[in-house]
Amino acid sequence: MSSYLSLSYFDLALASIFLLINGLISIAFKLGLAKKLLIVSVRMVVQLLLVGLLLTWIFAVSSPWLTALIAVAMGLFAGREIWARQERKIAGIWGFGIGTSAMMFAGMFVALIALNTQIQPDPWWSPRFALPLFGMILGNTMTGVSLALDTLTSTLVRERPAVEARLLLGMTRWQAMAPFTRAGLRSGFMPIINAMAAMGIVALPGMMTGQILSGVAPQEAVKYQILVMFLIGGATGLGVIGATFGATMRLTDERHRLRLDRLRREEPKSTSPG
């Protein structure tokens, strides 16, 4: 770590000039993006500073319960994000519950196994390893799950006559839903497949870049990245499959009906920035 170069707050302020230029361009051409850019920039800085403080404290306390609590809180925030990204949400607690639980189970399952077999920090739940790892897995699983659910529900709404025609011709709910469930799965898997395909050629992943910048030998950083990509890919797949299966269950019933009445009636304007 001898080659690690510390950044000063002045360096950060200097780097923000590029965003300021973007803001000025927006004002000059009346693009209406300046305010949004300002808000998300400030929000990002505040969030990251707070997380820095929080992590410092968590690492210092180093308690398994606190680590678990933080992991659950991260999961709930990610779950809310999945929920907010659905154009057609499943009504009630299910709308939040299906995506969140599928993502949490998949993420925790994969993270727990990785911590206990491959990475093996001491203790295995050490927050310095557990939380960043879980965070990376969670973030990607979140993207996959929200895309899968969004595609599934909007496809079902659009293709309702087709699904019902299949049911009326005597298919089971699983048979009738299969092409539409598959569409959801496909779009849930797409980001991670794209990421893996582009990895190292188009994109140098953030984690690996970060390790290299902080002085880790590229070969070691690459090994870590491969491990993380396997974990992310595995968790995303499990989460996407679980959520799609759960939503398919919820949007049909035991009498093999399509139950789009279990979607929320209308869509209020989304407030959360992308």
């Binding site: 293709e159 006559p161 025609a165 299949r166 005597g170």
Partner: peptide, 20 residues
Amino acid sequence: MPAFEWRRKLVLVPAESGWW
């Protein structure tokens, strides 16, 4: 009987047909 079996015996053709 399961609903899918029922719908094969008693078939409904809706006004708007669905195609997949």
